[in-house]
């Protein structure tokens, strides 16, 4: 069953066409990877899905519902969660508060109830804390750092906290922008394991952008390759790897090499 569908996404900044008729559909519960060389438009696709960029034309449907023109906060409330390539945690807060912030859109407490606190706001906060502790902190193995300010954490841990924050949003679709960039082999393995567990145990659909081709080919169900804002091919990891256009985009052609040498 299709959960997320993008049709003919076009995006340009001034005269620069960043996305050119990008169309794809993501099934419920799959891991869908988007790969391509630098500047191919991968992050722009995620930004369109999340609502940070507004495409020039084209439609995005989540579960059959047209979300093309909704604001980012509305899309977040509908279950679109996002992690960032350059960590975008809130540096002034502790790990726990950062994760709690992910739950923002399904909490109810208003301004007055918050100022009064005792009563409904307190009950809601305690429920939230228990849920985060049981499900997320335990799952991602970050018990030891929950009270620390995020700015004091190592890079790999910060990425993990960012994943925790996205999970607290109770997402249906998780958009991950280079989750293992800059990580060592061990941290990469941990992250790959978390991503697979999130798919299997939580049933969350994951769209992932990553340059670590080995990890992408290992964990994703389907892969879309983009270059210069255009889709080259979409298919299983095996079929994508042997696609001549993909090899051309990544390795170049014999002619180009010959031309470079002469």
């Amino acid at each position: 069953m299709t959960l997320l569908q993008a049709d003919n996404l076009n995006l340009s900044f001034g005269g620069l066409q960043v996305l050119h008729d990008i169309s794809f559909s993501v099934d419920d519960g799959e891991i869908f990877a988007i790969i391509g060389p630098n500047g191919a438009g991968k992050t722009s696709i995620l930004n369109c899905l999340g609502g940070f960029y507004l495409q020039d034309h084209g439609t995005i449907r989540l579960d059959g519902q047209d979300i093309s023109s909704l604001s980012p906060d509305r899309r977040a409330a509908m279950g679109m969660a996002r992690t960032f390539q350059n960590i975008a945690l809130f540096r002034g807060m502790t790990v726990l508060d950062n994760i709690k912030l992910g739950a923002h859109s399904y909490l109810q407490t208003g301004l007055l109830a918050a100022a009064f606190y005792w009563g409904s706001a307190h009950r809601e906060e305690m429920r939230l804390r228990a849920e985060i502790e049981d499900k997320i902190i335990d799952f991602l193995e970050i018990e030891h750092i929950r009270k620390q300010p995020v700015s004091a954490l190592a890079y790999g841990l910060q990425k993990r906290v960012e994943l925790a924050r996205a999970l607290a949003m109770r997402p249906r679709v998780l958009l991950m922008d280079e989750p293992v960039a800059g990580m060592n082999a061990e941290e990469t393995e941990d992250m790959a394991r978390f991503i697979l567990d999130i798919q299997e145990e939580w049933g969350i659909t994951i769209i992932i952008i990553e340059h670590d081709i080995h990890m992408v080919m290992d964990i994703s169900n389907r892969v879309m390759v983009v270059n210069f804002g255009q889709e080259i091919t979409t298919g299983t990891p095996e079929s994508v790897q042997s696609h001549p256009e993909v090899i051309k985009a990544y390795l170049g052609t014999k002619q180009a090499v010959a031309a470079g040498n002469s």
Partner: peptide, 23 residues
């Protein structure tokens, strides 16, 4: 101690990602 104050700090620290978090 509630989501309102957390949202305030999120807006101060990084307003773009605050919006993507649903604020």
């Amino acid at each position: 101690r509630t989501r309102v104050g957390r949202a305030f700090i999120a807006i101060r620290d990084r307003d773009i990602s605050a919006e993507l978090m649903g604020i």
